[in-house]
Design a protein around this nucleic acid. Sequence first.
DNA 1: TCTTTATTTAACCATTTGGTTAAATAAATT
DNA 2: AATTTATTTAACCAAATGGTTAAATAAAGA
Lengths: 108, 108
Amino acid sequence: MGRKPNNLDIVFSAVSDPTRRAILENLKKGKMCASDIAVPFQISLPAVSKHLKILESAKLIVREKQGRVHFFHLDAYPIREAIEWMNKYKEFWETQLDALENFFEEGD
Amino acid sequence: MGRKPNNLDIVFSAVSDPTRRAILENLKKGKMCASDIAVPFQISLPAVSKHLKILESAKLIVREKQGRVHFFHLDAYPIREAIEWMNKYKEFWETQLDALENFFEEGD
DNA sequence: TCTTTATTTAACCATTTGGTTAAATAAATT
DNA sequence: AATTTATTTAACCAAATGGTTAAATAAAGA
């Protein structure tokens, strides 16, 4: 029925691609321009440009145009909501592990 | 060039779909069979069956056949690696926020 | 002004994705 | 044995994804 994707959809699917995750990793070292970002990858510049656009619309990176060169820097903050969502499952599996532990330590 | 997807690819993309996230949420309440899982959704049973298969291959749920009925239960543990990956970015933005704070509190 | 450099946009393509309906399978019920 | 119930598999479809190459845009340099 064509729902509008929400933030979690967008962030999770942005980071589900290994090239995009690698770009984010590299940007942890600091601001970089498009062509430098592209260097480690074997794909074309337009392909990298598309990945950058996707990360940008997920708000995981910010574009700063300085003349003809586009610089990008990390903005990890939108990952917060994704971590929050996942942390609810962390609690779940920790409870499970505790239960398992108690089962085997029963009668101490 | 057709890489083999790794665990993070698989978990993040499994969880990037809102229907699948909703299924996981519902399974927190406990074990459920396929048709009961399908009830809240407006999609067909085969569509749900596909989602279940995807969650199963991401190892986020476990299938237990009891006669003709398939029960599914959560196994949140594979989310651990995804949380770990994201937490590196949590550190990143927290450092950024600290830096910002220090900037404004400069000269205390 | 002409050319080079940095980057994106356009047009295209193959594969994947998320849905459908119809058919197949498997187990329980009559 | 025949039927109903639970679920998956098959075949199909439209849209999205991730890549390509060629053309367009924008700014810098000669």
